[in-house]
């Protein structure tokens, strides 16, 4: 970003604010990410592929993405429901519910991790009930799913809520006047308006779940090939001072999550265009 790119402005503080912004951004974010990519460049694509192309790594990557996708889908449905209920209905306890939606943002992941494990372990409050019907939750993929639902819970609600607030009643009234049933209106008028925001929340929830570590490792059981998530593999490699392998898996995760975000952003652009609602 050289000088010709910046328009002249009477505002003061260009040098200071640009200096602080670019210096800190580089030092804290860009240079470290650059170090990872550089490590990968030295290693070469073939080297990365050799490291990643092992049964244990594939299993961990596949597990992370599959369960993240399922958790994000759950959060998509429940998040839209929550947003609708919180904006449209008035009932006692609404404020508390609204504030509670943000708890997964505020509660440290390690705290969530041990607490979910305590609940869903075979001797825990929920685990006991599940055990009676022979359903094992903690230390299985179910446990990982629940932890990922927890961390991704707020995203869809928080992106959809402002959109629900801005829906003009006239649109619904028009639909009703034209003879549409309430369900028809919800399905064909309201839902399309919420789609872009819901997809954004879905994408954020998915990205968060894929990289999640703290809340998952306690409840996962961490059995290789079965309940071992991708971020844990990086930690294991680092603990063995195997920096090349850790970097290779890290780059793979970075690339896949960027690709996912790109695809979902494209879906969003497409749906906005189709509906013509911004």
């Amino acid at each position: 970003m050289g000088r010709p790119f910046i328009h002249r402005s009477p505002m003061p503080g260009l040098g200071v604010s640009m200096g602080i912004t670019l210096t800190m951004l580089s030092l804290v974010v860009l240079l470290p990410i650059g170090a990872l990519l550089l490590k990968g460049a030295n290693f070469g694509l073939a080297g990365i592929w050799d490291t990643v192309n092992r049964e244990r790594v594939w299993a961990a990557l596949f597990l992370s993405f599959r369960l993240s996708l399922l958790a994000a889908l759950f959060n998509l449905v429940f998040g839209v429901l929550l947003a609708w209920v919180l904006v449209r209905y008035r009932f006692p306890g609404r404020r508390i519910l609204d504030a509670a939606v943000d708890l997964p943002f505020a509660l440290p992941t390690a705290v969530a991790g041990i607490s979910l494990t305590a609940l869903y372990a075979p001797n825990g409050a929920f685990g006991q009930i599940a055990a009676e019907i022979g359903w094992k939750i903690a230390y299985t993929q179910w446990g990982i799913f629940i932890a990922l639902v927890f961390v991704g819970l707020p995203f869809v609600t928080r992106t959809v809520q402002p959109v629900v607030e801005e829906i003009e009643r006239e649109v619904e009234e028009a639909s009703a006047t034209l003879g549409a049933s309430r369900l028809h209106t919800l399905r064909h008028v309201i839902l399309p308006m919420l789609t872009p925001a819901a997809l954004t929340g879905f994408a954020l929830s998915l990205a968060r779940a894929v990289g999640e570590y703290g809340s998952v490792i306690f409840i996962a059981g961490n059995i290789p090939l079965v309940t071992e998530i991708a971020p844990l593999l990086i930690i294991i490699q680092l603990e063995e001072f195997n920096y090349d392998a850790a970097a290779a898996i890290g780059i793979a995760m970075l690339l896949i999550s960027f690709a996912m975000l790109l695809v979902i952003n494209l879906i969003q652009i497409w749906s906005r265009r189709r509906i013509g609602y911004v």
């Binding site: 790119f5 910046i6 328009h7 260009l14 640009m18 470290p32 990205a207 990289g211 990086i234 680092l238």
Partner: peptide, 29 residues
């Protein structure tokens, strides 16, 4: 307060840590 090219890109870069796994962030450092 200023108009410059690449503003959207800069905002994307600032948001980047949200889409990077904390473990990968630690690895980078």
């Amino acid at each position: 307060k200023f108009d410059f090219r690449g503003k959207a890109f800069l905002i994307t870069l600032i948001d980047l840590p949200f889409s990077v796994s904390p473990v990968v962030a630690g690895l980078c450092i």
